[in-house]
Simulated scan of single mutants.
Amino acid sequence: MNKQGWIIYNGNLPGNKFLDFAEWIQSAAAKKSSKTTIYKNNELLSFLGLNQLELLQQSNNQLPDYVVFADKDIYLAKQLELLGVPVFNSAESIHISDDKIATYQYLAKNKLPIPKTIIAPKIFLKGKPDNNSIQLAIQKLGLPMIVKEAFGSFGEQVYLVHTEEELMKKTNELQGKAFIFQEFISSSYGKDLRLHVVGEKVVASMIRKAANDFRANVSAGGTMEAYLPTEQEENLAIAATKAIGADFAGVDLLFGPNNTPLVCEINSNAHIRNMYDCTGINVSDFIMEYILDKIKDE
């Protein structure tokens, strides 16, 4: 019997990038004779009550055999898991991926190479900058330095600061938010790698470069070209994906000293159109093959 699935994306965000991802997944599922329905996250409300755990606004009462969760609404993902539906990626892996601090903690726990990182202390009220933290960060990491908010996408919420004055100003601006101080990897200025991992395999990869920005994100103006990763880079991307418990992910690697790769970020819901435009590889085909193989006996 062919499996039926749902694909869930966030319908409240501007642009068609997230719907585009969902439609690519839907097309890949159809090639495998799996019928899918695309939902916006606000079309499936989680309902809780006495002896009640369900979804509202469902077109029918039948739950799917699987869900591809192209969103960061982890409470909805968890609701589906509690209802017994396999969710890809899991709510926990999406949560870890979305929180850069949690990501680095899991990477460090698994002894994977990352830039040196200090987690800024939590401050709830705005006031004077925490001078002790700033001085310790400068002492341990040096200047220039990266300041990175825990939550952000497309290279935004990442700042390169050059002086102590800039650092104090940025730290003051971010009071009340979760963020980190991080070593600046000058050898990777304006360039990085995106490796797309599915299961135990790197299925596509590209190098991204920016002429006038320390960030290489294509959405921030960077260019891209197909890239053949080394065995070390592939193994690191796969290990990073496993470290956060994801089934598939877009892993961003920096070029450390002597081209030693460092993990920069892990994206549990990495968009796949740029990768296709760059390499001609449709990552969604690999994702659906992986999912359907994993649930075939359920």
Results as ranks from 00 to 15, higher is better:
225 E>D: 07
267 N>S: 14
217 N>Q: 13
266 I>R: 05
210 A>E: 00
251 V>S: 01
236 L>P: 07
260 T>S: 12
220 A>D: 01
259 N>C: 07
227 Y>N: 08
225 E>W: 05
260 T>V: 13
234 E>A: 14
246 A>N: 10
247 D>F: 14
272 I>Q: 06
271 H>N: 14
264 C>Y: 06
213 D>P: 00
253 L>F: 06
235 N>E: 11
244 I>G: 00
231 E>C: 04
254 L>F: 14
264 C>K: 09
273 R>G: 02
226 A>M: 14
224 M>W: 02
225 E>G: 04
211 A>C: 04
251 V>E: 03
215 R>Y: 08
249 A>N: 13
210 A>C: 05
238 I>F: 03
259 N>K: 14
224 M>P: 02
221 G>D: 04
230 T>F: 09
250 G>D: 11
211 A>K: 14
256 G>V: 05
272 I>L: 06
262 L>S: 00
223 T>N: 04
240 A>T: 10
221 G>S: 05
233 E>V: 11
222 G>N: 10
231 E>I: 11
249 A>R: 09
257 P>L: 04
270 A>E: 00
216 A>W: 06
211 A>I: 09
258 N>H: 12
222 G>R: 09
224 M>I: 14
265 E>F: 09
235 N>F: 07
262 L>R: 00
264 C>P: 06
225 E>H: 08
226 A>I: 15
240 A>K: 09
258 N>E: 15
270 A>L: 03
248 F>V: 05
222 G>S: 10
227 Y>F: 15
230 T>S: 15
229 P>F: 12
258 N>P: 08
238 I>S: 01
253 L>G: 01
228 L>M: 11
229 P>S: 13
249 A>Y: 06
215 R>S: 07
258 N>D: 15
243 A>M: 01
235 N>Y: 08
223 T>V: 07
241 T>D: 04
231 E>K: 13
238 I>R: 02
223 T>Q: 03
215 R>T: 07
268 S>M: 08
215 R>I: 10
268 S>Q: 07
272 I>T: 11
216 A>D: 03
242 K>Y: 10
249 A>I: 08
248 F>T: 04
244 I>N: 00
233 E>P: 10
218 V>F: 03
253 L>C: 05
260 T>D: 10
241 T>S: 07
211 A>W: 03
228 L>V: 15
249 A>G: 14
221 G>Y: 04
224 M>G: 04
219 S>F: 10
256 G>M: 03
231 E>D: 11
262 L>M: 02
263 V>S: 00
265 E>P: 11
247 D>H: 15
262 L>N: 00
229 P>W: 12
246 A>P: 11
248 F>A: 06
241 T>I: 02
221 G>E: 06
228 L>C: 13
240 A>M: 09
241 T>V: 02
235 N>S: 12
257 P>C: 05
273 R>C: 02
252 D>Q: 10
246 A>Y: 10
229 P>A: 14
240 A>Y: 11
245 G>Y: 03
271 H>V: 12
225 E>L: 09
213 D>K: 02
226 A>R: 15
240 A>Q: 07
214 F>V: 01
243 A>Y: 01
265 E>H: 09
236 L>G: 03
